[in-house]
Amino acid sequence: MRWIAAACVVGLIGLAGFWLLTMPRPLDAAAIANAQGDPEAGRLVYFAGGCASCHKTPDQDDPLHLGGGFALKTPFGTFVAPNLSPHADAGVGRWSLADFANAMQRGIAPDGRHYYPAFPYTSYQRMTATDIADLWAFILTLEPVETIAEGHDLGFPFNIRRGLGLWKQLYLDGKPFAPDPAATDVVDRGAYLVNGPGHCGECHTSRDAIGGPDPSRHLAGGPDPEGEGKIPNITPHADGIGAWSESEIAYSLESGFTPEFDSFGGTMAAVVRNMAQLPASDREAIAAYLKSVPPLADAN
């Protein structure tokens, strides 16, 4: 009897610990913009952030028709992007800016549930409060779409959302973007775009066994977790894009063409459609930053 009681107590303490460690931790109110966002500026944030790549309705070309439904196949199961249109029932029409900021930067739904990190909030947490508010203002100008996307298809234990609180303890540090005092403004702008809204590392940095990015492999590519093929190394190493000039990198983001005039394929084609919408100065900044990161050889 005594042993059973002790086991119950230990179990309860364990449960309480799990509960505390996995609690959603929203943004401080001070980290959310209090001014109205500018939808015109938000349009650029939208394309810098690549929102359409996952949230646009598949098999149609309008990047602003956000019905969701894109399936991202991963080793953990299949994630399905939800409706991001301002539809009151199917999309985000009832959300506040604070709801949106917490989704983008803390991976928390308005009802407090954790989002899976297939939604790249570990990158978006670096975005400025102004960019988040501008993006939100832009999304509210888009056409409401009625489609309700299907749910994710995940096996145990990945289907237990609460457990994501533990994952976030490891990989969501909550830090905003910090410019490098030694870098030029152009390189800093590129660093912000690559590591914040552009979320380049979500594919180009390889992940560990539980799906966290490996900082020692920053932007060095690796096997494609979605299936066959590989994600290119985009560090300035001979294995990566060391031979590319800054203007070749910037042109590749605008046109999809490598210096040899091969054409990007796969999911990078959608990235190019987004990057082509940015001002040339932003593509040049990304190029300048990519030339400045530590060169890393391909992993064997």
């Binding site: 066959e228 394929g265 959608a270």
Partner: peptide, 16 residues
């Protein structure tokens, strides 16, 4: 003509 490059590679080419 070149918009064909990316749109076809998007679906039918895998980079190795």
């Amino acid at each position: 003509v070149t918009q064909n490059c990316g749109s076809c590679h998007e679906k039918y080419r895998v980079k190795k």
